[in-house]
């Protein structure tokens, strides 16, 4: 099917088209603080030029207005970049890089819902951010692995030290990653899949 168009909206470029046989998608979410390399990771492994999607969040405002019983709503537009990896002719994986402001992640209905899991990019320059991020994922029951992104001049900590600083159980995989390197990003995603595989088998195997 090829429809004649004269519309102002651009769809995907020819090379970004998925085959008609694509039956279903899965998603993985990349989380981490400001500037840790989420967009870079998505761009490094994506088969399409990364795209940006947005959502309008409505939050009940807290303020003096509430005393007067006036409903006070704050609207914020949150943008998120994402990429895509075709797994096979039927299956496609989407990777979402969360926006920097963590407080919006869980307001975004359905971002984590149905996700296979998450990759936490850990910035050793701001450990407290990652600590909060990990807490949020644990609360939500989202399985995750931790990828330590090292920047020039970043403090270098032994993994065991980082693990205890993050209160991270031994069972959660933690490793270094360079978000600019394709093989490193592939290994990161692979580590998440292996971890999920392990969790799944652990549950289905009777003790």
């Amino acid at each position: 099917m090829d429809y004649k168009t004269s519309d102002p909206y651009a769809g995907p470029r020819k090379e970004d088209i998925l085959p008609s046989s694509t039956a279903a998608a899965v998603k993985v979410v990349i989380v981490g603080g400001f500037g840790v390399g989420k967009t870079t990771l998505v761009g490094t492994v994506s088969e399409i030029r990364p795209l940006t999607t947005e959502e309008t969040m409505t939050q009940a405002g807290v303020g003096v207005d509430d005393l007067a019983g006036i409903e006070h709503k704050i609207e914020t537009t949150v943008a998120m970049d994402f990429g895509r990896i075709s797994i096979n002719e039927q299956l496609v994986l989407y990777l979402f890089g969360t926006p920097g402001q963590e407080r919006f992640w869980f307001l975004w209905d359905g971002l984590f819902e149905g996700a296979l899991g998450a990759v936490v990019l850990l910035d050793t320059r701001r450990l407290e951010v990652s600590y909060d991020v990990i807490g949020l994922l644990e609360e939500r029951g989202v399985p995750f692995v931790v990828a330590v992104n090292t920047f020039p001049g970043s403090p270098v900590h032994p993994m065991t030290e980082l693990r205890s600083a993050m209160d991270l159980p031994e069972s959660v995989p933690m490793f270094t990653c360079d978000a600019r390197d394709r093989a490193s990003c592939r290994d990161t995603l692979m580590a998440l899949m292996r971890y999920l595989y392990h969790l799944t088998n652990e549950i289905s195997e009777p003790q």
Binding site: A24, K27, I87, L91, R194, Y197
Partner: peptide, 22 residues
Amino acid sequence: RPPVPVAALPNVQLLEAVMHGL
């Protein structure tokens, strides 16, 4: 076409397919 349903954890066949693709 709805996403592959992932309850608490994804199933093994799905993970194997994703790993193969990666």
